[in-house]
Design a protein around this nucleic acid. Structure first.
Lengths: 153, 153
DNA sequence: GCACTCCTGACCAAGGAGGTCAGGAAAGTC
DNA sequence: GACTTTCCTGACCTCCTTGGTCAGGAGTGC
């Protein structure tokens, strides 16, 4: 139930690309790495994965760099996380709907499905455009408004 | 963003203990392992962790076994998951409220906080009593009612 | 004293996390 | 055509986690 460095890096780099989308010019990996303080070579692997998933495009050579394949308001955080981490909320590496629970844990499946749905309700709602503008969807506002949400437990 | 085998096993074993709470007698590890099809020796390690976290009690010897330290309706899934997996929704192994995001990813912190809050809204609401009775809290019903929640993506 | 059951630490293989390194391949510039 | 720039790719590396197994020790009950 944790977020990997890779996923965090990927979203941050994508946010930089979203912000640079107006510029109409590719952004160098080096600039992304510096802006978000991410090891360059590691970031390049991540960007490659994002490219393979059709989230990012790239060109080599002088004047080369990376840019978003789609408008920033059409790319969700969920997509980016899935691209680098794989499916969200798998249990024992299999999707919860495929697991058979017996005996007294029969209803556990519904709980894991609910967990996944709740994750989706956040990650699939927030787009890169929301992220860079700071105008996050209302679901985020509701979840973060309580003081309680900001303390560890 | 996945649920480990350990967490899944822990919740299932705890569900068996919850169901057996009426019996007033300890349940052997072997019986738990068989009921939920969990490797016995692995399960024993898990039960030990639950014990150290004050969720379960145990006695050795003949007539020994495990039982819940508290009534089933006072133990949440969140507690069990934390006992075996550690804190929920950490990013790069640190709690989201401690991370400083700069530049265009400034608002990413709020997103991760929202992710954690949404997980909590499910995991802290469901108790072992809910799980074995099948009367899950309304939040689970709402999240699982859509057909969409049950399909992979 | 003995059977029973939990308790504990050591170990193990495979894979993932979080990188680094070295070189190749396209694109632009002179 | 040579050269520089920048992405692309695979190999490699260390440390840690996952998902276990094994062997023995220590309480408990009869």
């Amino acid at each position: 139930m944790r977020v990997s460095a890779k996923a965090d890096y990927a979203v941050r780099a994508a946010a930089e690309l979203a912000a640079a989308q107006a510029e109409e010019a590719p952004v160098k990996g080096e600039r992304l790495a510096e802006a978000q303080d991410i090891p360059l070579q590691f970031l390049e692997h991540i960007l490659l994965e994002l490219k393979h998933h059709g989230i990012v495009r790239a060109r080599r050579g002088a004047k080369g760099g990376y840019w978003l394949a789609r408008p920033a308001d059409e790319v969700t955080i969920a997509e980016i996380v899935r691209a680098v981490e794989g499916p969200i909320a798998h249990v024992q590496s299999t999707p919860p709907e495929d697991i058979e629970y017996r005996g007294n844990s029969e209803h556990l499946q519904a709980v894991w499905i609910a967990v996944r749905a709740s994750l989706r309700s956040v990650l699939e709602e927030v787009t890169l455009a929301d992220l860079v503008s700071g105008e996050l969807p209302s679901v985020v506002g509701e979840l973060t408004s309580s003081k309680d949400a900001w303390v560890a437990r």
